[in-house]
Every structure is written in structure tokens, then in C-alpha cells.
């Protein structure tokens, strides 16, 4: 069943906030799909990167519940290919930050086994904690 959505000021505020945080003019997105087609993580995502751009543009805040932004690892493949030179990585980072600033963490140090902790390079652990905690 088709979803009925309202375009309202709250949606605009959400878009403005993400545009400010990311520094990207999301309204420039042409929806060409280059980001999604090239994303190495696409198989793991529930919502395509181009859809994220679309949903933010029309102010759909429920996009925050998608796991896509947590899958994005800032590999910048989309960044170097977007025909409008939009940096989708920055938009994903902005969305993560909105959630993380509600003091919600997305990684639990207790769940890393002793064996793993011994072999994991420090850049992996520091990187993950910097991306997944507020």
C-alpha cells in the first residue's frame, strides 16, 4: 500500500539541519543512482544511498531508522563519482551524528571477545568507536 506523506515545516527543518551538518546541498541531488550503483556496501543496506538523499530532501525523518548510515564506512566511492559532486559520505555522517548526539551508542565493548581484542588492529577499534559512539 502506498504510503501517504505530508510535506511540512518539520520536514524542511530536518533537511536544513542535515544540510548544515553535512555541508552538502542535498537539493542538488539529481537521483541518478550513481552512488547506489557503485556502493560496495549496497548488499548490506536496507535503503539505497540515493534513497537516503531523496528521503532527506523531502523531509522524511523516519529515514533515521534505516541501518544504511551505519553500514556506510566513508569509503568515498560515491564522493568521487557523483556527477553533482555531492558528498554522500558526509550526509551519512551527519545522519549518524544526529543519532549519536542523543547519547545512543551503536557498539558495545563488552561484546568484543578477548581473542578478537588481542588480534584486532588498534585502528579498527578506535575507528569503530569513533564512528559508533557519541
Amino acid at each position: 500500500m502506498a504510503k501517504l506523506i505530508k510535506l511540512d515545516d518539520k520536514g524542511v527543518e530536518f533537511l536544513d539541519k542535515i544540510m548544515e551538518l553535512s555541508g552538502e546541498t542535498i537539493t542538488l541531488c539529481d537521483q541518478c543512482g550513481t552512488c547506489s550503483g557503485g556502493c560496495p556496501f549496497i548488499a548490506e543496506m536496507d535503503v539505497n544511498p540515493s534513497q537516503i538523499m531523496r528521503q532527506v530532501m523531502i523531509g522524511q525523518k523516519n529515514i533515521m531508522e534505516s541501518k544504511t548510515m551505519w553500514i556506510c564506512a566513508s569509503c568515498f566511492t560515491c564522493t568521487v563519482r557523483c556527477p553533482r559532486e555531492l558528498d554522500v559520505s558526509k550526509v551519512a555522517e551527519a545522519l549518524r551524528q544526529v543519532k549519536l548526539r542523543e547519547a545512543i551508542d551503536f557498539i558495545d565493548i563488552e561484546k568484543i571477545s578477548e581473542e578478537e581484542a588481542r588480534i584486532l588492529p588498534s585502528i579498527a577499534i578506535v575507528g569503530a568507536f569513533r564512528k559508533f559512539t557519541g
Binding site: P40, F41, A43, E44, I71, A73, S74, C75, T77, I107, D108, K111, I112, E116, L120, I123, A124, I125, G127, A128, K131, F132
Partner: peptide
């Protein structure tokens, strides 16, 4: 040669890294 290996997901989402 420049396709992402999964990066820090290796910490808590090993499967992504295994696949990539």
C-alpha cells in the same frame, strides 16, 4: 583494487568484511 574491504566493520560486523 580500490574497492572497500569493509574497514572498521571488522570489529562488530565481521560478516560484511568476510563478504567484501
Amino acid at each position: 583494487g580500490s574497492r572497500c574491504c569493509g574497514s572498521y566493520h571488522t570489529v562488530n560486523n565481521k560478516d560484511i568484511v568476510v563478504n567484501l
